[in-house]
Nucleic acid binder design. Structure first.
Lengths: 346, 346
DNA sequence: GCAGCTTTAGACATCGTTTTCTAAATGTTG
DNA sequence: CAACATTTAGAAAACGATGTCTAAAGCTGC
């Protein structure tokens, strides 16, 4: 039942535990080729597995990193996680998944546990909850963690003052909206996300900026409330039927892809054809976007790469390198079947 | 930079580290109310966080559990993972995610690392790769892990001889096929999964059993090869156009939901109407299934619950309880818009 | 008032590593 | 060949907890 320890390896090899440790841990310390060989063989025949807990205790490095997401089931986060896991694995780290479910208490509890485990790094994939009373508490805990030597990175707009790598949400929304304008659309609706979600608002900002730059008034009745879910998208468009025809949007820009899918399904129930009657686009470019019928025009974010970059930023911090406070990842507009030109004639 | 240890807490409280440990670890050992109070206060003012690595080393329990999946991005696994994370968190465990990407070497490497960390439990969410040379190697490693005290559970058909909780894939496929027969279909195609994937084959068995029970010959040209991906589903149906009309299937049963989505999109490109020209159904009931247009008839598996049950089974093993070798979770046919009756008249 | 319990606290060994410090063996130089 | 570097190996002290074993009090009861 009990695993073999380095002591037994040392005995079998006829050396001290010090030298055994030196060859096992690949320490930068000279060991003659012959003794090294003996230790390796002993370890192999005993099927030795070094105790990572003991090692971590001594080296003050757990080689554990955690990724905090709202919900690992959300393709957005799933994609990021897979990038995180990929490079964590390459670099010899284990990835711990923490679903916060948007519950401050669950998040705080996880942070406490991660502190107990002396996690080397934390990645906040989702944005904060925005509750001021809570975010102060969060701020404190993070402060303590960082003093303890834990590296922290956010992958989205966040109240935390820590290094961050973020997709260019503003720029993406700006570009997409400009493109819709180019296509001739003037009545462009936007489906928002949860009011307290920073990303959602930044995208909204980009949309509004494009309109103002083009000298177009932002019509409140074209600001549809969504919540970044499928259901939310479906419901958001239900009201459009009640608008008099000339006021109806000719394009709908959904704050994220899930919402866009909901919008598509909602419109179909309304009997509106996409893109014939109305163009639809999203934000995120989840894998499904390109296989939908019609396939979805959207803003592409390389989420896996975002996850990867996040881990690299963590590792840089752990290596005591100087690290840029904010790194922006470009986003690109991908045009598919769900959008088309609009001209008054049509 | 260095975290405070229990020694400093003990000093501050004016007690020995033994008593400090006893109140911190909530050990079952009498400590007077007044000293307990002193220790709690000292811990609070010092903002003490017990070192889980040190604790784990002593107690021989890491409170880490790992879930091994092919790809956390796959909604099937994502759902299971979320169930795992949920109860792991409730029960005071941290969840480590391991994407194997169907690479034996990556899986083996993870198992080695998990052994190093003295993980308390492992959950195999996906099925094995079926390579005999590899599965023997796997068998050995698992054997060692279990002897070491690590609990192991599989959530699918697997070559490993360990406790398992599984969805009733056979029964689900059987029921679904029977239902299609009830609806009047006689030419029912089945889109397979990867040949070496056990679940895929079990579902195929269920389909074939239903047909043989009904006295219907299984036509090889209605066995379409897929690979459990969207693209695979799209491609699988391309050949159907070349079949003479009377031999064309009136229903297509896809081995999983992703494939079904691919099938839907493939059929649309072919110009076939669903369900008017052909009924389509899947297996799994991923969240998307009900918002598709048409919404997808499928076999529902409560994957989150599968994950939850998996963890409970792990914990039972860790508590040295007797554990059933195989626990089967029922599946249910959910009828939505993508299937309808068929009669020769139509 | 004393033998014998029960309750509570402390000293110390221990878990399995890494790492510093010391020392032996070997190699180099004049 | 003496004197001194350079390699290589070992002894022992951490790291931060838990848990056993021992002992000091505080209570019984006779």
């Amino acid at each position: 039942m009990n695993a073999v320890s380095i002591l037994e390896v040392a005995k079998k090899a006829g050396v001290s535990i010090a030298t055994a440790s030196r060859v096992i841990s690949k320490a930068n310390y000279p060991v003659s080729a012959s003794t090294r060989q003996k230790v390796m063989e002993a370890a192999a025949t005993l099927n030795y597995a070094p105790n990572a807990l003991a090692r971590g205790m001594k080296t003050r490095r757990s080689n554990l990193i955690a990724v905090l997401v709202n919900d690992n089931t959300d393709p957005y986060f799933a994609e990021i996680m897979s990038g995180v896991e990929e490079v964590a694995n390459e670099q010899g780290y284990l990835t711990i998944i923490c679903n916060t479910n948007r519950e401050p208490t669950k998040e705080l509890h996880y942070l406490q546990t991660l502190r107990d485990y002396r996690a080397d790094g934390l990645i906040f994939a989702g944005s904060g909850f925005g509750l001021p009373t809570y975010s102060q508490r969060l701020e404190e805990v993070i402060q303590v963690l960082r003093e303890q030597g834990t590296a922290v990175v956010t992958l989205s707009q966040h109240s935390l003052q820590v290094p961050s790598v973020q997709a260019d949400n503003f720029g993406g929304a700006l570009q997409m909206t400009k493109r819709l304008l180019e296509l001739g659309h003037r009545l462009i609706a936007f489906v928002t996300g949860p009011a307290n979600l920073a990303v959602a608002n930044v995208r909204l900002q980009g949309y509004m900026m494009a309109l103002t730059e083009a000298g177009i008034m932002i019509s409140p009745q074209l600001l549809l409330t969504g919540d970044f879910t499928l259901k939310g998208g479906e419901q958001a468009v239900q009201g459009l039927n009640y608008l008099p025809s000339p006021e109806r949007p000719t394009a709908i820009f959904a704050g994220n892809d899930e919402t866009a899918l909901g919008v598509l399904s909602g419109l179909r129930r309304l009997g509106w054809q996409v893109p014939a009657d109305v163009s639809v686009c999203g934000f995120g470019d989840i894998p499904l976007a390109q296989v939908m019928v019609p396939s979805l025009t959207t803003v592409h974010i390389d989420l896996r790469d975002l996850g990867r970059k996040g881990v690299f930023k963590l590792l840089s911090q752990l290596g005591h390198e100087e690290v840029a406070n904010l790194e922006v990842m470009p986003t690109t507009v991908i045009e598919r079947e769900s959008t088309t030109t609009f001209s008054i004639a049509s």
